[in-house]
Simulated scan of single mutants.
Amino acid sequence: MPAEHDLITTPVTAGLLRGALDVERTEHGLLPHRLPAWARAQNTDPQLAMAESQSSGIRLALRTRATVVELDTLRTKREYVGAPPRPDGLYDLLVDGRLTGQGSVTGGNTVTVDMTAGTAELRPGPVGTVRFTGLPDSLKTVEIWLPHNERTEVVALRTDAPVDPAPADGRRVWLHHGSSISHGSDAASPTSIWPALAASLAGVELTNLGLAGSALLDPFTARTLRDAPADLISVKIGINLVNADVMRLRAFTPAVHGFLDTIREGHPDTPLLVVSPILCPMHEDTPGPSVPDFSGIAAGRLRFAALGDPAERASGKLTLNVIRDELARIVRRRAADDPNLHYLDGRDLYGEADAAEFPLPDDLHPDAATHRRIGERFAELAFADGGAFGERGASDA
């Protein structure tokens, strides 16, 4: 093998990436996206633009004998005025499916956000390098999972042995859409977000369309799900509709039907699981919007509060309980003609007993331990024999 100072540079192409639905050539390298260009062109929301460009679920997948792997990337990291620095995004290295290393890069761009003023300032920075050594000297599949909470432009890949794209291994592709909880907010690393954990336990390939703050039944998201390859599909609907306070029950019901109709245009018989919100006590019976509480931000504590009035439910304002009841009704009605459509109550993933054991640190997002609980539960419930994605799921609908 070449010496470490004489590493082989392999051009980074879309064929080395998994979990991305589009790639963009930038002046630095390859920027993976989780929404295609035509969908991005229809979006006007900076929050969604940020979320879809972050690399949740995206990884390089290589077949190689290399014992040394270096990856140059340009990250874009976010900081918040008045808050302690956020931890660097992590890269998870898997060898034949096992986590064997973690690292991060320095440098990169920084976006400083002033949440009180509603402003953001970009400070450019240099490319950084993450390096992994000591890999086994044998032919193997190497995956490098990119940080789930940072925008990552992949600049260069160097190894001490040739690499090829990892071949498809026949595993089913699971396409999932949800909110920041599915995106991985407050998870420890990219392979420990709950969808990645569930995919690993179930032995499926994940494409993650968890979009922080942006699971809002957007038609372009439905068309993206319609067009993306998938053997299994799940959509987790609810929390963003409440905390953004974007619609009432009159609009919600037809929007859900339209969202599901669009997915079915491209995947008429694919197992499709509708998941309602996990427990979030502040919004169970109180409508949104939810807003950040900055009083503890200097000490690194950001919390959220619900501003709605429970009495407004009578005029159609959405709460999590209202959404769960309506989603269950919609799926029950549609399943009479669609035996591959299923419903899962999110409180079966994280309910009252779980909240007593693992309370939501900011009253909205799960921590690392809770991501593990949710991932394990989802694997147990959805992928079990007779579950939505299990061997007899379709026939038992």
Score class of each variant (00 low, 15 high):
Ala3Met: 02
Val12Gln: 05
Leu17Tyr: 09
Thr26Ser: 03
Arg34Ile: 01
Trp38Lys: 11
Arg40Gly: 09
Asp45Asn: 14
Ala49Pro: 00
Ala49Glu: 09
Gln54Phe: 00
Ser55Met: 04
Gly57Pro: 08
Leu60Cys: 04
Val69Thr: 10
Glu79Gln: 15
Val81His: 05
Pro84Gly: 07
Asp92Arg: 09
Leu99Trp: 13
Thr100Trp: 10
Gln102Ser: 14
Thr106Trp: 01
Gly108Lys: 11
Asp114Trp: 06
Thr116Glu: 15
Thr116His: 01
Ala117Cys: 01
Ala117Asn: 01
Thr119Ser: 15
Gly125Glu: 00
Gly128Glu: 02
Gly128Phe: 01
Arg131Pro: 02
Thr133Tyr: 00
Thr133Cys: 10
Gly134Gln: 10
Pro136Val: 07
Asp137Arg: 14
Glu143Thr: 07
His148Asn: 08
His148Gln: 05
Glu150Pro: 05
Arg158Gly: 04
Thr159Leu: 13
Asp160Asn: 15
Pro162Val: 08
Pro162Phe: 06
Val163Glu: 02
Val173Gly: 10
His177Met: 13
Ile181Gly: 09
Gly184Glu: 04
Asp186Leu: 14
Ser189Arg: 11
Pro190Asn: 05
Ser192Thr: 15
Ser192Phe: 05
Pro195Ile: 06
Leu201Ser: 11
Glu205Phe: 01
Ser214Thr: 03
Leu216Gln: 14
Leu216Gly: 04
Leu217Met: 08
Thr221Leu: 05
Arg226Ala: 05
Asp227Ala: 10
Ala230Ser: 11
Leu232Met: 12
Ile233Pro: 09
Lys236Val: 04
Lys236Glu: 12
Ile237Lys: 10
Gly238Cys: 08
Asn240Arg: 11
Ala244Phe: 10
Asp245Val: 09
Arg248Asn: 13
Arg250Gly: 13
Arg250His: 11
Thr253Ser: 10
Ala255Cys: 09
Ala255Ile: 06
Val256Gly: 05
Val256Phe: 06
His257Cys: 05
Arg264Val: 02
Arg264Met: 02
Arg264Lys: 03
Gly266Lys: 07
Gly266Leu: 02
His267Ile: 09
Thr270Ser: 08
Val274Leu: 06
Pro277Ser: 14
Cys280Trp: 04
His283Pro: 00
Asp285Thr: 13
Pro287Glu: 11
Pro287Cys: 02
Pro289Ala: 11
Phe294Lys: 04
Leu302Val: 12
Phe304Ala: 10
Ala305Leu: 13
Ala311Asn: 09
Thr319Ile: 03
Leu327Trp: 06
Ala328Phe: 03
Ile330Lys: 07
Val331Tyr: 11
Arg332Ile: 00
Leu341Asp: 13
Gly346Asn: 09
Tyr350Trp: 03
Thr370Cys: 14
Arg372Gln: 14
Leu381Trp: 11
Ala382Tyr: 03
Phe383Arg: 10
Gly386His: 10
Glu391Tyr: 12
Arg392Lys: 15
Gly393Val: 06
Ala394Thr: 15
